[in-house]
């Protein structure tokens, strides 16, 4: 049974949520939501479950890549407004790492550090990652200088960078494979392991027929993990 807080949070995140539905949802007890046959209550429950389902699927299907030592990033285009719920989850899973999720238009950045969760929304994955790379490099330079002459602080350097002062040229756009560190080796590792788990002779028809839906694939921006032999008609429609 969904608790009221969870129901309202999920309903608010649904792309088709309205003030009227939210107002009605606030009047409902968890038992009513669970067991009513009222069409509007059923609609509220299904909408909340749809958002919860998307959160669960994104937690499973997003792939993260490292950017340096401190950042994990992933492409995501959620159908509902669940960006922070997912980035917060990974921030708690990887304390101390900046989690940056997003697509061409929006990005969600979360960090869990010293017991506190920090969040920032951005304009797009590429620009957010480029900004973070620049700041990280400036901070790193600042630390090296502190160790050297102890005069110039990292803050001052970062400020100069933001003001358009001395600034190294950075490659804008997607992070390079070199910065990610061993990208080719990592994708081979997964492909090899994944293929080792398949056993077509044990295919159980509809009994074991787990698939990642096309919408979930798009939302998680997954590279194709399905072989052409397993493409079904519904995947093409």
């Amino acid at each position: 049974m969904m608790r009221t807080g969870e129901l309202l949070r999920h309903l608010a995140a649904h792309r088709n949520s309205t003030d009227r539905l939210m107002a009605r949802a606030r009047t409902l007890s968890p038992e009513e939501v669970e067991a009513s046959t009222d069409p509007e209550v059923l609609r509220i429950r299904r909408m909340a479950l749809a958002v919860r389902g998307e959160v669960c699927r994104m937690r499973g299907f997003i792939r993260l890549r490292p950017l340096g030592e401190r950042v994990l990033w992933g492409r995501i285009s959620p159908h509902h407004d669940v960006g922070f719920e997912i980035s917060d989850f990974f921030a708690r899973r990887f304390p101390g790492k900046l989690i940056v999720l997003g697509d061409g238009r929006r990005s969600w950045t979360s960090l869990y550090s010293e017991g506190a969760l920090h969040r920032q929304i951005g304009d797009g994955l590429s620009s957010t990652l480029a900004d973070i790379s620049r700041i990280m490099d400036l901070l790193a330079e600042g630390s090296e200088e502190e160790k050297g002459d102890g005069v110039t602080g990292a803050d001052e350097k970062a400020e100069k960078g933001r003001d358009g002062g001395e600034e190294k040229e950075r490659e804008k756009g997607q992070p390079s494979e070199a910065r990610e560190g061993g990208g080719m080796e990592r994708s081979d590792l997964w492909s090899v392991y994944y293929r080792s788990q398949d056993e077509p002779r044990k295919a159980g028809g509809r009994r074991y027929s787990g698939r990642i839906s096309r919408r979930a694939e798009r939302s998680a921006s997954l590279e194709a993990e399905r072989g052409s032999a397993t493409t079904k008609l519904e995947d093409l429609i």
């Binding site: 990887f94 017991g115 788990q197 295919a203 698939r211 990642i212 399905r226």
Partner: peptide, 29 residues
């Protein structure tokens, strides 16, 4: 834990499916 790597979840998760339709959620070796 603050210094922990991992978890943050109370249920299992499926990360992908093999061609034969079975869930792959662990590094099984």
């Amino acid at each position: 834990g603050e210094d922990a790597l991992g978890s943050a979840l109370r249920g299992g998760l499926c990360h992908s499916f093999t061609g034969s339709g079975r869930c792959v959620s662990l590094f099984k070796t």
